[in-house]
Design a protein around this nucleic acid. Structure first.
Lengths: 207, 207, 207, 207
DNA sequence: AATGAATGAGAGTTCATTCAT
DNA sequence: TATGAATGAACTCTCATTCAT
């Protein structure tokens, strides 16, 4: 068309990006606080100060913004994990590296929304996990399952083994995030040790 | 005037107890299928055949019936755990016993609602855990934390230790419940071994 | 179940019927004033004084209440037409009878909602025809088409013939309904004559 | 300052006229496909490739563009009718000419949007009549009413007479537009005959 | 105590229209 | 003047809860 005017290059474009981010940030918070079901689109946009309809200029539904959040987390974490997998060492090393990477990512992620949460007030039925975290968690789970299936570890029940690793990682990480200061190194070491040697392998145990 | 004297204790009381139980049963199913947020009071009451308003003669809200369900599970599981705690043996033994008791309870609980679920169809954002399970989980968690704090185990970070045990128990139990047939013994053994000795302690590992 | 109490027999049942009717009446008015697309469920329930949600206790959607209205009209008019069809006389007679029946029905129907309409204020894009009217119109159309196809009239283009009859009936009826007093006899006679003999057959024409 | 002197009359003006026409064309299609209520400004503007806001540089509302469309049709048809009226012959002739002109206009108009409609898919509650058609219809109606009031026909009820003519014209025309090929001559002849002599005047009737 | 219709707040979503660019 | 994101009122529909019966 001949009437090319006001190509989006300046402030318009900028606020668009800002709004998209604002919605994403608000959604992260709201999902973290209220859980997926508990969160409403209105909760999200209210926190941005934007109008109700504006949400739908960026995402078509609650589902979609949730997916975008999860994607975002996965996308940022994927390369880290991939590098680890590429190294292809012993399960021993892989577990330590993967757990550490996971814990570090979670800690980073955490501060962006945990800070402004009314501390101590843990709603019922809510997991306090952002979609990003969930996505990253899924990645790690996948990696561990693969590692075990590839036979880089003892031959027991692979599914149970992965489940156990995952369980430790998730729960210890959760605890870590509740402490101040957050000590990623200590928590990751603990979890790795626990995964590899169990309670009896911990310092102070009589093996 | 409303209390009719000498009303035989039967019919009326009977009905009340039955209705209360019917609601509880329906709620267990519905929460299991739809999750807490997804479940509606209508879903619950519809399954009982009672009228909508009747729900509120027994529970003041969805929240309350959920709590009642959790209480119920906890109340039934508490004595089992208590007996274990009373035995006061080594952490070793306690872990095995507690895990086994937990897994057995879960398996029992499970069949009461898992049966009629459309298998394979796992909704997003739904955890498939009844309130009872959640409550029992909390009990076990408590027991393990206590055991560790009492010094019946290695002196490391007690909170992390409990978290790790809990994580293993939860995840392995979940996997167990998805298999057919459900082999409680194997799963409990695996989880206990994992808790005590980690991956390296599993058969086939070079320690 | 044993707890049979307060069977719907008295006032409850009564208001239910009243509400259903109130919604139907309101819907008739609103569709008449605003047209199908223009009408909203809110418009309808607002006019009844009932709460928003109450609408959905009676009809699942705007579509459904519209269909109910149309059904109602058709159901009431069907027997009249059927009797006419049964008589099986000449097209001549059939046309006069059918037109008369149609005009009479419309006149009856009309007063129930036309009365409270802001007179003279004819919105654009709106046909001022209730679903009942539309339904009855469809019935008559069908009857005329059948009569013509059965060869009870001249052999020309049956579809066009029916269309022409229908056109006359609809338009003349509309005009009739706008006059005061409504003279069904005169209007029906006119329409019949016009259908049968055209302008040239009208009094005052030189044939 | 904003009006640059000596700006060649071309580009700018050209664009304005083109845009106005593009919106009108799009609106014609959309109203034809979706009906007035069903059509949205977004539907219209999307089809032009212009931006949402641009619509409002040309028309203040959906209502206004609709009116413009109607005007357009009326403006194009008016001279045709006027010529007919000027001839001032018998009602007989006038009816035939007017009907023919009307049918021809409708057929022309029709192809411009009917072509790209998903055939056979007739939405409920939608009339498939462009605003232009409505306007032209109104013109013809007016002409016939005038002719009758001027006493160029039988002295019966003029309003009813006009209504009857209009009804025939509208319905037969509708049918004509649904046939393939569209035979304007036959349809116009039929309608004229029907208007003038009724069913009994049709070939095959015993008069 | 049981009933189930009524309630109305609030959910997700659409859309005509405005306005900074 | 063209743009298209922002706006916010209004829409359909759901649901926890109340209350007359």
């Amino acid at each position: 068309m001949s009437q090319v005017a006001y190509l989006p290059a300046g402030k318009r474009e900028q606020t668009k990006v800002q709004n998209r981010q604002a919605i994403l940030d608000a959604a992260r918070e709201v999902f973290g606080e209220l859980g997926y079901e508990g969160a409403t689109v209105r909760d999200i946009i209210r926190r941005t100060g934007l109008a109700a309809g504006t949400f739908y200029n960026y995402y078509r539904s609650k589902e979609e913004v949730f997916a975008a959040l999860a994607d975002d987390g996965a996308r940022r974490f994927a390369p880290i994990l991939k590098a680890l997998r590429g190294k292809g060492g012993a399960l021993d090393t892989f577990v330590r590296d993967a757990i550490r990477a996971y814990f570090e990512f979670m800690a980073d992620e955490h501060i962006s929304w945990a800070a402004r949460r009314p501390a101590g007030e843990m709603q019922p039925h809510v997991h306090g996990e952002t979609p990003e975290m969930a996505a990253v968690f899924a990645e790690v789970k996948d990696a561990i399952e693969n590692a075990i299936n590839e036979g880089r570890g003892p031959i027991s029940d692979p599914e149970y083994m992965a489940a156990a690793c995952i369980g430790i990682a998730r729960e210890v990480c959760d605890k870590m995030l509740m402490r101040r200061p957050i000590d990623v190194g200590a928590a990751a070491d603990f979890a790795s040790e626990m995964i590899l040697h169990g309670l009896k392998g911990l310092p102070g145990a009589k093996c």
